[in-house]
């Protein structure tokens, strides 16, 4: 248990702690939480709230990646979901009514389910490579969102809709609650049932799984549909937060952040064993990075470079080669614990 923890989550957690420390030095009030008007405020809350969409998408992405796939279309699905919801709200005579918002949200989620089924169909039934299959929707989806918004940025003024992205429930941001629910649902659904085992098995060895009677087609369709569903929820949060649907920019590059979160969390892009907890830490690392850029005062133009540097550091720390080197250093310093080889090492056979 201890070994598994160290091999998978150790470095991402260390990185998160390092980022926290940097923030604390630059901004001593970093960890302070306060309650204003019955709402929780503080830097950590901001990180959780702003990181919620990425986390939600990354959860879906984790399952997709575990099957050896990838879903590049999540950003486009975000935009479509936002566009659908906003155009319904704008087209309604009562944009402020809860009923309208409910219809808008349900419509957006249903469309996302269809889009997810489409991805799943391309991958599982037609056997198209996931990167290509989802690339189709990644490019076409933005176009579809543009058609829905008719090329406009749809600004909505609907208090119930605004709650999704910026409201509070019991003092906690709604988006954080939604992310927590999605995370818990995914964890329970895959680990309390046999879904996780079957997903991993298909990701590691599809043919062996087929011969063992695993219905991989259904599994693949399920994970791509779940991924699109999660993306739509994230899209609704983003749109609600901006109170506007922007077909071009809603969820732009969020697929990359989500994939990064999964990889930082220790799930291999080669598929197989996955860690939702790792993905959670990965998403927090990415969001904390963005916050750090502001608290430390790095010029915004350097943000991307800074982010890249940190991600590179995490990936380097996780690589088997680096681990082996570290291991040698530790031993040569005479502090080597009588441990055993890591799984990566043994897998050379």
């Amino acid at each position: 248990m201890n070994r598994m923890f160290s091999s998978r989550l150790f470095w991402p957690v260390v990185m998160l702690l390092v980022l926290f420390t940097i923030n604390l030095v630059a901004f001593p009030g970093f960890f302070s939480l306060e309650v204003k008007n019955g709402h929780l405020f503080g830097s950590l809350v901001d990180i959780a709230r702003n990181g919620a969409p990425t986390l939600i998408i990354a959860v879906g992405m984790t399952l997709v990646i575990a099957t050896r796939g990838i879903d590049l279309s999540v950003g486009a699905v975000c935009a479509i979901a936002g566009a659908v919801a906003c155009s319904i709200i704008l087209g309604s005579p009562e944009p402020g009514s809860i009923g309208t918002v409910a219809v808008a949200v349900i419509a957006a989620l249903l469309i996302a389910l269809v889009l997810g089924l489409w991805n799943g169909f391309l991958v599982a039934v037609l056997g198209i490579q996931p990167i290509i299959a989802t690339l189709i929707l990644m490019t076409a989806g933005r176009g579809a969102a543009m058609l829905i918004t008719e090329g406009q940025i749809l600004t909505v003024n609907s208090p119930p809709f605004k709650v999704i992205g910026s409201g509070f429930v019991l003092g906690i941001p709604v988006s954080v609650v939604i992310a927590a629910v999605i995370f818990a649902a995914a964890a329970l659904l895959t680990r309390r049932t046999a879904l996780g085992l079957l997903i991993e098995s298909v990701g590691i060895n599809p043919e062996a799984s087929r011969q063992a009677g695993v219905r991989s087609r259904g599994l693949l369709i399920t994970v791509y549909t779940f991924s699109a569903f999660a993306a739509a929820i994230a899209g609704l949060i983003l749109t609600s937060n901006q109170t506007a649907a922007d077909a071009n920019n809603t969820g732009l590059f969020i697929e990359l952040d989500a994939i990064l979160a999964v990889v930082i969390g220790g799930t291999s892009l080669a598929g197989g064993r996955y860690s939702l907890l790792g993905t959670l830490v990965g998403a927090l690392v990415i969001q904390t990075l963005v916050t750090t850029v502001y608290t430390v005062g790095i010029p915004p133009i350097a943000t991307m470079v800074f982010k890249a540097a940190v991600v590179t550091a995490v990936c380097l720390l996780q690589s088997p080669t680096t681990n082996a080197t570290f291991g040698r250093w530790r031993r040569s310093l005479g502090r080597g614990r009588p441990g055993t080889r890591t799984a990566e090492r043994a897998s050379v056979s």
Binding site: A194, E200, A208, A212
Partner: peptide, 29 residues
């Protein structure tokens, strides 16, 4: 190797795989 075992899973998971697949994911052992 190619069609039999699922290398990165445990002995336990490999043994129950076919049985679990037969029961469906919703009825975990």
């Amino acid at each position: 190797r190619a069609e039999g075992i699922v290398e990165d899973l445990t002995v336990r998971d490999n043994i129950v795989l076919a049985l679990q697949a037969d029961r469906g994911w919703f009825h975990p052992i």
